[in-house]
Design a binder for these strands. Structure first.
Length: 555
RNA sequence: GCGCCUGUAGCUCAGUUGGAUAGAGCAACGGACUUCUAAUCCGUAGGUCAGGGGUUCGAAUCCCUUCAGGCGUACCA
């Protein structure tokens, strides 16, 4: 509808120029928007104001000229008004909106899809939590946001690849092994002191118990280094499997689980360092190796190999991001917790240093999640090992609600996640509000079939033309907006736009449902209304699918 | 100190990338179920868009500044 009007304005402006009614044929692109106030029409354009300077004319004069040259070949415009400083307001026929319904039905599951990705290969890396402990709600947010962004991008023409980067090498894995080993000794009755920098959580005991059951003799007999290495390997695999289970429970799946250790094993970290050294981008100072990130916009240079000869996390990250580009991705997206934001400049720097444009690298930072229960904060101390795991939250609240809550805020704002609120099946918890629309419509169709013996819907010209109630037109107008919501969600990588759209559409539907009956005795009207609500249901289903939330037929 | 994020109704949050009279849910108050699911709807009330300057036809939105909260500022990850 908007594009239709845009074209009409463009041609009208050209015609006005030819007729000498305006001074220039150099126009800014036409913008159309939906006025908030109904009195300002169905759609409006600020075309005249934007072009006032170039035309050297008063906006209202320009608007007048454009309106006088409008050619409404399809007869969709009821009337136009020039208002305020120079808005052109369009009031459309109700029949102008009816074709939207046919589009929804014809495109069905593909309604709203677009091709802004144009087949570009895009990698979304997300969660990537260290396999040293269970996931918590913060990881859950990153998981849901990353997964949903990926789904939306793929719906909009990108070839999407989901990846989880496993930090399965280095000091923290070593620490994990040490933690488990010490707990093993403790279980065997040895006198130990458990260091503060070790992992304190109870899950360490759980793993230690399993190891002691399986191979107590070996564990106590083996050399310490050997035993710790074994514990590290066993524990990290065990924890990673738990992470995989938790994510599966959330409906999150990956195309690839990428091992950090594999970068070392295949020599890609060394190769990257050597390459950058050869390029003069890595230098030695105070017996450490430094990367010249400062020259590429970072605050200062960063160490890649420490004095003690060990590589830093940054070193493998350089190799990792280089590898991503080597694998042919046009764009790479990292989803990180906001506490890592300081890391962006150095990764960008490394990418620029490698000769890639850092436009192709984008970081989504999800802000932290405060877990509450009935308004009071739940203690979340990772150090003390006391925290509520993601698994517990999913078990208590349910996957749909968890996902929807994460998706009903912009990921850049902090989020209060209240377990009690999340469990409520009221409008405090809008996932049910949206799902209820789907269930209600299913119920209408069940009734139509069983009690009215209506088996098919024609949606023909006559029945659709009967849709003229304001609430019906409001619904159709709303549905017409869906494709642009999807596109903007993809473009800005902001899934919450879809969640809010769905809540809005749901509200419009519930209002309609309460005011009008679908299964009326007038069969033509009933047919038109069934055609209408089925379209609503399709959009609700499509939208919820994109968000990874189920669309139930009954609640 | 410096950098990033945030600040909108009592609470939780939107706000179409600069548009007209700033919106929704919850909470409060008053209404609507013999009719397709009341997990719903209708109405009332609620605002110095943190404060102050600026940019222009027009600012919650852009720029500067002050304040408040969070996070980050390692040869940790």
């Amino acid at each position: 509808m908007k594009t239709k009007l845009k074209n009409m304005i463009k041609t009208a402006a050209k015609a006005a120029y030819k007729a000498g009614a305006i001074n220039s044929d150099d126009f800014t692109p036409v913008e159309i928007e939906e006025p908030k106030a109904g009195a300002h029409g169905d759609l409006a354009s600020n075309f005249a104001m934007l072009n006032a300077a170039a035309q050297k004319m008063a906006p209202r004069k320009i608007a007048e000229a454009v309106v006088n040259h409008l050619a409404d070949s399809d007869g969709i415009i009821d009337k136009t008004e020039i208002a305020g400083p120079g808005f052109i307001n369009f009031f459309l026929n109700t029949s102008a909106w009816h074709p939207v319904l046919h589009e929804v039905h014809a495109q069905d599951t593909q309604y709203g899809a677009c091709n802004i990705g144009d087949g570009q290969k895009i990698q979304v890396e997300f969660v990537s939590a260290n396999p040293t402990g269970p996931l918590h709600v913060g990881h859950g947010r990153g998981a849901v946001v990353g997964d949903t962004v990926a789904t939306i991008l793929s719906f909009c023409g990108y070839k999407v690849f989901r990846e989880y980067y496993i930090n399965d090498s280095g000091r923290q894995i070593q620490t994990l092994g040490r933690s488990v080993y010490l707990r093993c000794l403790e279980l065997a009755g040895r006198d130990i002191t458990f260091p503060e920098d070790c992992y304190q959580g109870d899950y360490i005991y759980d793993i230690a118990r399993i190891l002691m059951d399986q191979s107590k003799e070996w564990m106590l007999g083996a050399g310490q280094d050997e035993a710790i290495a074994y514990c590290a390997k066993y524990a990290s695999e065990k924890i990673l499997n738990g992470i995989k289970d938790d994510l599966a429970l959330l409906g999150v799946d990956f195309d690839n689980w990428f091992s950090e250790q594999s970068l070392y094993d295949s020599g890609r970290v060394d190769a990257a360092i050597k390459q950058f050294q050869a390029d003069g981008l890595i230098y030695e100072k105070e017996s450490a190796l430094w990367f010249k990130t400062h020259a590429f916009g970072d605050e200062k240079d960063r160490v890649v190999v420490r004095q003690n000869g060990l590589t830093t996390y940054f070193a493998s990250d350089i190799a990792y991001h280089r590898d991503k580009f080597d694998r042919g991705f046009d764009q790479i997206i990292d989803v990180w917790g906001a506490d890592h934001h300081g890391y962006i400049p150095r990764i960008s720097a490394a990418i620029k240093a490698a000769g890639k444009n850092d436009d192709r690298f984008h970081v989504i930072l999800t802000q932290l999640v405060n877990l509450l229960r009935a308004g009071t904060p739940v203690a979340m101390s990772t150090r003390a090992g006391q925290f509520v795991t993601l698994r517990e939250v999913i078990d208590e609240v349910g996957r749909d609600a968890v996902r929807f809550i994460f998706l009903t805020r912009h990921y850049e704002s902090q989020l209060d996640f209240d377990l009690e609120v999340a469990k409520q099946k009221t409008n405090d918890n809008p996932v049910y509000y949206v799902q209820y629309v789907h269930a209600r419509i299913s119920s209408i169709f069940k009734k139509a079939k069983q009690e009215k013996n209506i088996k098919t819907i024609s949606g023909d010209a006559e029945s659709v033309s009967r849709l003229s109630e304001p609430e019906e037109i409001a619904l159709i107008k709303h549905m017409a907006r869906y494709p642009e919501v999807i596109q903007s969600a993809a473009q800005w990588m902001e899934p919450h736009r879809i969640a809010f759209y769905l809540m809005d559409l749901a509200a419009t539907f519930h209002a309609y449902y309460n005011k009008h009956r679908v299964l009326v005795n007038d069969l033509k009207l009933a047919d038109g209304r069934l055609y209408l609500v089925l379209a609503v249901q399709k959009i609700i289903r499509n939208g919820l699918n994109l968000l990874g939330v189920s669309a139930p037929d009954a609640m």
